[in-house]
Design a protein around this nucleic acid. Structure first.
Length: 968
DNA sequence: TAGAAAACGTA
DNA sequence: GTACGTTTTCTAG
């Protein structure tokens, strides 16, 4: 095909429906076969081909094809199970015409193109792209707005029923945006006929205006908070992921696999007798005559063709989807479910081979530029940094790897050191791109919002790049995709994911770096080995992304990923980067005090024991207590050692034994010293002088975060001694720390999900919930209630959240198991709805293998059907707890995601520093404290909205002070 | 020297 | 009774 050629592409499937509805019904005289659409189609084709010969029309096709939908099981269904879900079956009169129209196409001597799994529009887009690349012109015979995105200088459309050309100007006139913006426009408006969601409340007019103002969808969604209209802003924020999904759905594929190339579409001469035979069979007399005249054929000589009439329901037949979960995964070729299709992709990835020799080590800017160009072309790039430390806040960049297509990955070394081994350390290895040059180019790529940067645990790379002045704009994280799909079933580290999904065991870091004291850091590894390792990581990451993203979609979990996971990456990275000030002096003073106290207690212990021994050794201690001294009540742990846990020692102390009391005291002091006052100063970053914890997003089965290095979610608070450690967490000069925590959030969630009238009422009235419980259970008035009664009710309330057992409650309260059982019985009599909820949750978990939070997050419990009663019971309790703990975790996640913008909008400079499950810690200028608290409370208390309207109010307590102890 | 076990800090 | 991470001791290699 050359630039003088002109390709005509007829959207056959769309035409069928339009002709059927627009034209008067027509039946074959002889037998009543409905043929209206066929007649319209034949007339249209004939006219097009005749006009083509009239050179004065100016448009002469040299290539021609008619394109059809093949099946409704397209990749879009895989992306979005609801796609075209509201399509009803085609009218009975239309069904037999699908096959006839294909026959007609062949009778016209025209190629009839259809591809399994793709829509006609994708095939059209692909051919149009190919023709444009050849420099040729394309005319698409359709008026479907879904195709308007293809219109440009080389591609136009033609509406055969209205005899109207559609070019760039017509698209702009009709929709107010240029054709290249049609995708974004459709993503916003959605499409009710195809069941594309879009953003509620946004029609074509609003969409065009928004796109005019913000340029494109990504920018609009990013800056949605600036929009003045309340409802519109909320919807754009709330349904951003839905808009992105819609965009994926409306974007036509230009790489549809095609059996016939452009040259195969060259227009063949009309075969008069062949066409007339078909037309006679259809009994289209007028058209038969015209064709006979034009082709100089004697129609009387031609026998009518034998045309098979079959009910071809392939084009738009009913969907036979069984549901999102597929049993044995054996996809039937006629009706694969979305999950089965996702699994199909997983199967394909599982057999992929890894060729480490194919990886490239990039050592000059030209090559780097070429790879970056390739990434731009793809629009998606897997990215991974290699450094010398697991601490992103201290790590030095050794290099980075890129992968834009499976199997094609490269490593870019930047700071590898020569392993000379002298004490001064080797210099830089020769032949590495200067860091500044490479990062300048990388910045352009990573900060481009149209490039999707895919990583495994991207928060780490985000922080490393941020420290080099680069902020990744659009990201996907394979760890988080896995977490959304599989929370509760194994880990989400790259090695585990690679083995699970790709059947490939990656090169182990310890195999290239060694282990222990003489382990190498990555910058000391030779470039060849480094390339094999680092490029493999990027390769694996991209392949995982290709497998996991469809998994998320197929299971209907995209909203969980988009609303609760992906946005948190940058939020947490910023919190970690800020860190918190910890006063070294205070900790050092406390360490001294604790050391003295521990030493004194240790002397007493040795005195009481009558010998010196290692007090820190439970083994030695057990021997002394239960062996040498023969104290009663000794129990053994599962390894046969004497158990010496605090609660046991407390019991002994209560019987008047002095030694156990002293052990408990000693343990408390040494715990505080070793874990907190001694360890924390070591975490103060020498550069920032602050402590930067690391939050794990995918560590828990319920959706909670986890904090480590150091863990700032378990700083002591229960004892007076412990609280003193909190005084070392301080605000910088001129600032205050603000602590804001949800009051009773898990019990509120329980009241909501289990729908318990008394609980809901109590929270609505702001009543003391434990006292209310006690009053209901024991008939004691709240006024003047004994502390012990309330304490027991409180323990029961917590027990409920934890999936209560008589054994556990008895343990907690120090009562007999039978008595605890009575309490539970009474509780369920007063709150039968709770028991119903617990039973229903267990049943759901047994049935599905997972449970869900109110926002749809899943936690898996594959062992809930274990034949081991202990294992089963444990899984049941966990399954009962997960929706409650997890929903609360989701709520605070939502608050955190909104918080930075809310503070910025209020022009407050407060910074969110820490999260402790139901508490957020901020650092704010002294004079903004009151305003900040108001904004923080507002965001936290409304965090479930607008997705969920809780049946109980959420309440947040907040206070400000110079240190964490006083603020809490 | 790596990993399990026991203990204990938090929500 | 739920969910975590860190420290120390102790054992196996």
């Amino acid at each position: 095909m050359t630039k003088d050629d002109h390709l005509f592409l007829v959207d056959g499937s769309a035409y069928i429906f339009r002709a059927f509805h627009a034209l008067p019904p027509l039946t074959r005289k002889s037998d009543g076969l409905p043929v209206g659409a066929v007649a319209g189609f034949c007339n249209m084709l004939w006219k097009l081909l005749q006009d083509a010969r009239d050179t004065d029309v100016g448009v002469t096709p040299t290539h021609f094809a008619v394109i059809f939908d093949y099946s409704s099981k397209t990749f879009r269904k895989e992306l979005y199970p609801e796609y075209k879900a509201n399509r009803s079956e085609p009218p009975e009169d239309l069904v037999p015409q699908f096959g006839l129209i294909r026959e007609a196409t062949r009778a016209f001597n025209l190629p009839c193109i259809e591809v399994d799994g793709y829509e006609a529009d994708d095939i059209i887009a692909t051919y149009a792209r190919m023709a444009t690349e050849a420099g040729a012109q394309t005319t698409i015979i359709s008026s479907d707005k879904d195709l308007m995105q293809l219109v440009d200088d080389h591609v136009s459309m033609y509406d055969p029923m209205k005899d109207r050309q559609i070019g760039i100007a017509e698209v702009v006139k009709k929709f107010g945006v240029k054709p290249e913006k049609m995708i974004d426009l459709q993503a916003l408006t959605g499409d009710s006929t195809d069941n594309i969601p879009g953003v509620p409340g946004i029609g074509p007019k609003t969409a065009a205006q928004l796109l005019d103002e913000y340029g494109d969808l990504d920018t609009l969604l990013e800056r949605a908070s600036e929009i003045k209209q309340n409802k519109r802003r909320e919807n754009l924020i709330e349904f951003a992921d839905q808009a992105r999904l819609s965009r994926e759905l409306v974007t036509l594929k230009t790489d549809t696999p095609l059996d016939i190339d452009l040259d195969g579409l060259r227009l063949e001469p009309q075969d008069g007798p062949k066409l007339i035979a078909f037309l006679k069979a259809m009994e289209f007399n007028t058209l038969t005559r015209r064709v006979a005249e034009a082709t100089d054929t004697d129609a009387g000589e031609v026998e009518p063709a034998t045309v098979e009439v079959e009910a071809d329901t392939k084009a738009h037949g009913p969907d036979l989807d069984a549901g999102p979960e597929s049993g044995d995964g054996a996809a039937k070729d006629d009706a694969p479910t979305p999950a089965a299709l996702a699994e199909e992709r997983a199967r394909a990835a599982a057999s992929a081979k890894f060729d480490h020799d194919a990886y490239v080590c990039i050592r000059d800017v030209e090559t780097l530029d070429a790879w970056i160009a390739k990434a731009r072309e793809a629009g998606v790039v897997a990215f991974d940094t290699e450094t010398d430390s697991l601490d992103a806040m201290q790590a030095t960049l050794a290099g980075f790897s890129l992968c834009a297509a499976p199997g094609e990955a490269a490593y870019v070394p930047l700071n590898h050191k020569a392993g000379d081994g002298d004490l001064l350390g080797g210099g830089l290895v020769d032949g590495q791109i200067p860091e500044a040059d490479a990062l300048e180019r990388l910045k352009d790529l990573l900060e481009d919002p149209s490039i999707l940067v895919v990583g495994q645990n991207l928060k780490y790379d985000w922080l490393v790049m941020k420290r080099h002045g680069i902020e990744i704009a659009s990201l996907d994280d394979t760890m988080l995709l896995s977490y959304v799909v599989d929370a509760g079933t194994g880990g989400h580290g790259m090695d585990a994911l690679s083995e699970r999904w790709l059947g490939h065991k990656p090169i182990a870091f310890k195999d290239i770096a060694g282990t222990g004291k003489k382990a190498l850091t990555f910058d000391m590894i030779d470039l060849e080995t480094a390339t094999r390792y680092a490029a493999e990581d990027a390769d694996i990451t991209l392949r995982l992304w290709k497998v996991l993203k469809p998994q998320v979609l197929a299971r209907g979990l995209m909203h969980v990923y988009e609303r609760l996971e992906r946005p948190l990456v940058a939020v947490l990275a910023r919190m970690e980067a800020r860190g918190i000030s910890v006063d070294r002096q205070i900790l050092s003073r406390l360490s001294g005090e604790f050391a003295q106290k521990a030493a004194a207690i240790e002397d007493e212990i040795h005195e009481l024991a009558g010998e010196r021994f290692n007090v820190g050794s439970p083994k030695q201690l057990g021997e002394i207590l239960f062996g040498k001294l023969g104290l009663p009540g000794g129990t053994k742990t599962k390894t046969g050692q004497w158990a010496t846990r605090a609660s046991l020692l407390e019991d002994l102390a209560a019987e008047g034994h002095e030694l156990p009391r002293r052990i408990v005291d000693w343990r408390q002091v040494t715990k505080l010293k070793s874990t907190y006052t001694d360890a924390l100063p070591g975490y103060i970053n020498p550069e920032t002088k602050r402590v930067h914890t690391s939050y794990a997003l995918a560590a828990t089965s319920t959706g909670r975060l986890a904090s480590s290095d150091p863990n700032l979610q378990n700083i002591p608070i229960r004892t007076a001694e412990g609280r003193r450690i909190r005084t070392a967490f301080v605000a910088d000069k001129g600032n205050k720390l603000i602590s804001a925590d949800y009051s009773q959030i898990e019990l509120r969630v329980l009241a909501h999900v289990a729908d318990i009238a008394q609980l809901k009422q109590a929270f609505a009235d702001g009543i003391d919930i434990h006292a209310m419980t006690a009053s209901e259970m024991f008939g004691v008035p709240v006024e003047g209630m004994p502390a012990e009664v309330r304490r027991r009710a409180k323990a029961i309330n917590f027990g409920i959240i934890y999936g209560i057992s008589a054994f556990g409650l008895a343990n907690q309260l120090g009562i007999e198991r039978s008595e605890a059982g009575e309490y539970i019985k009474t509780y369920f009599e007063r709150f039968p709805g709770i028991r119903d909820y617990m039973e229903a949750t267990k049943a759901f978990a047994r049935e599905n293998g997972y449970v869900e939070t109110i926002f749809g997050r899943r936690a898996h419990y594959p062992e809930i059907r274990s034949s081991n009663p202990q294992v089963r019971a444990f899984n049941e309790r966990a399954a009962i707890n997960a929706p409650i703990q997890g929903s609360a975790a989701d709520i605070i996640r939502r608050a955190m995601i909104r918080m930075d913008d809310a503070l910025a909008e209020a022009k407050l400079s407060a910074q969110m520093l820490l999260q402790v499950h139901d508490e957020l810690i901020f650092e704010a200028p002294e004079n903004e404290v009151e305003e900040t608290i108001a904004v923080v409370r507002e965001v936290m208390e409304n965090a479930a909205l607008p997705a969920i309207q809780m049946a109980v109010p959420l309440h947040v307590d907040a206070a400000a002070a110079d240190n964490w102890d006083e603020a809490h």
